[in-house]
Design a binder for these strands. Structure first.
Lengths: 349, 349
DNA sequence: CTGAAAGCGCTAACAC
DNA sequence: GTGTTAGCGCTTTCAG
């Protein structure tokens, strides 16, 4: 059994072994109808015997289509991005595509050219830009149009005209969390925000502010403090709030990791939760139901959102491919859900 | 400026625009020395102006080398695998390779042929098999040799002769955790294990058992219970242990997520930790220092291990490429670290 | 230093 | 039904 170097069996080798032309082998591999049953069977047997694996590379080159998607992410060490990636890989797989993954070393980078080059040079059919909007990291897309030659779907950013964006409604989440605390009878509801160069952090905070304003409750500069998503930062923020907002009876914390830290600090000071201080988080970590006490939180379904993003990009690719009039690029916003557990349920209410 | 369809600028277009042959453009792109300065400058200008991006696909085809690695993982929704992937992406990037990612829908699947085909058909230069060993999911590799035609490095499995494996020493971790509790003066140290079809779970448990035996302490069938890594499962396991091992004064819990649940149950029952019950976990989640009380745990550096795995695969690829005698495939085992926090430090000791 | 020819593995378009 | 020809975008080899 002759083989080319590196052990890759070529279509030509299969063809000659089966006594047909490469074209016929190609037809069999792609299950085209116009092959005689007998021929097909014979070729298939040879394919199996020689363990022939068609080269997707060669096919991509000629078809100008790779059935490969590029995904750009950042912060894989956090749970959010990995859940997102989880959804992406699954959806991509189901759609019959492969996935080329790029992780940005810094989330707020504006240097995206090398990333594009790496993806485009490998002929990806489309790109999912799953890096959250932080600082100016959307500038390269909005100011000077990159026109990378392939469609891009963006995740987790401010919807912009003409760009297909898939996001969770963080503003709504902030409102829901705060409204829930108001309903529970809390009247001095503080906020520990995420880092405010993050779009998501600003949205959650805006939701908090609007919900309080509408309820006629205070939401001034003394009533919130900025964290950086980490548990450590929340301990400091709590300190600040305790000083500058002594009447505070509840906090909407911008993520569960920070909320956990607030729980710990409260436990250390003998502060009762939810009696003395009501807490609502954001994210719904797998651990959150097992905090002391179990944490009320806003659930973001990264997974579903990722699936939507993949569906969108594939829709665009297929329509471009069919030469249809380019699809209008619309945005999708997914509502989060409130999960009520113990940390926010006022006793005796 | 003429372009082929799909907006891809070809080397031929650049060549004709610069008034040279494609060969010369190729030389410039690959920074070969044998080009006149003047020609090089001119070509480079045209490349920039036309935004020419060489096709890595075409190059891969001819060079029989793609500078792309395949990574196969599972359970991306858990923190461990995503940390691993985090390390992989970073190391792969630094080495100048791209990464094709496949996530297995089920961790214990033995159906690996389609996964290989997808990777091999895209000409990956090597594969990192980062799926933990569970049940029989290593059978396909060990019984009938797959010989996929490219080198594979395996992560998180029992070292086997002839296969390059990179793992954390889970057995040692189990010993360290248990020995620490013994040192603290605990004498009835139970274990909540992971699911025992997982190699890692068996290793951790073996470490617990051996450490106790050597200390002359009991480690019988009544002294441990099986969990499934989830917080919920640990609550049940604790129930069981409390009944069948009433003298129990400490527990080595096989991961932090389960340990958290033990902490919560203890808090509910008014059981003091570490006074009434000492706890050591395994993993070191980012949240673990913020539990109530802060959790002593075994830190696994997934990140570093992943970097080692990438370094190994690239070493093998390069040596194969240079036609050197195939490298001996050796295994690497990385020691974990004990992180002592409050949950295991006996008061008054 | 530069270019022409051949071909990586495959498929589209056409012939028979 | 099946084979032949051409060529995807690039690099290798060999002339000049």
């Amino acid at each position: 059994m002759m083989r080319s170097k590196l052990g890759r069996v070529t279509i030509r080798e299969v063809a000659s072994a089966a006594g047909v032309s490469t074209q016929t082998v190609s037809r069999v591999v792609n299950s085209r109808p116009d092959v005689a049953r007998e021929t097909r069977d014979r070729v298939q047997k040879v394919i199996k015997r020689m363990r022939y694996r068609p080269s997707a590379l060669a096919r991509s080159l000629i078809q100008q289509r790779s059935y490969t998607l590029g995904a750009v992410i950042s912060g894989l060490k956090y749970i959010g991005p990995s859940r997102t990636l989880n959804g992406i890989t699954e959806a991509v797989e189901e759609a019959g595509y492969a996935l080329l993954l790029k992780e940005l070393p810094r989330i707020d980078t504006t240097e995206i050219t090398p990333v594009f080059d790496a993806l485009i040079s490998r002929h990806v059919d489309g790109i999912i830009w799953a890096v959250p909007e932080v600082g100016d990291n959307r500038k390269p897309f909005t100011s000077l149009p990159v026109n990378p030659g392939v469609p891009i779907v963006y995740m987790t950013m401010e919807p912009r005209a003409g760009l297909p964006v898939v996001s969770i409604d963080n503003y709504l989440g902030g409102r829901m969390a705060t409204a829930h605390l108001v309903e529970q009878g809390y009247r001095h509801i503080a906020h520990i925000s995420g880092p405010l160069d993050w779009w998501e952090a600003r949205q959650r905070m805006a939701g908090w502010k609007d919900a309080l304003r509408e309820a006629g409750l205070p939401a001034g500069p003394k009533h919130w403090a900025e964290g950086n998503w980490s548990s450590a930062s929340a301990a400091k923020a709590l300190e600040t709030l305790l000083q500058q907002y002594p009447q505070m009876d509840a906090i909407f914390v911008a993520n569960d990791q920070m909320a956990l830290s607030v729980l710990q600090s409260a436990w250390r000071r003998g502060l009762q939760i939810p009696g003395g201080l009501g807490i609502v988080g954001f994210d719904d970590l797998p651990e959150s139901p097992y905090f002391c006490p179990p944490l009320t939180t806003i659930q973001q379904d990264h997974y579903t959102v990722a699936k939507i993003a993949v569906a969108e990009i594939i829709k665009i690719i297929e329509s471009d491919w069919k030469g249809e009039a380019s699809l209008e690029r619309k945005s999708v916003v997914v509502a989060p859900a409130l999960l009520v557990r113990d940390s926010s349920v006022r006793p005796g209410k």
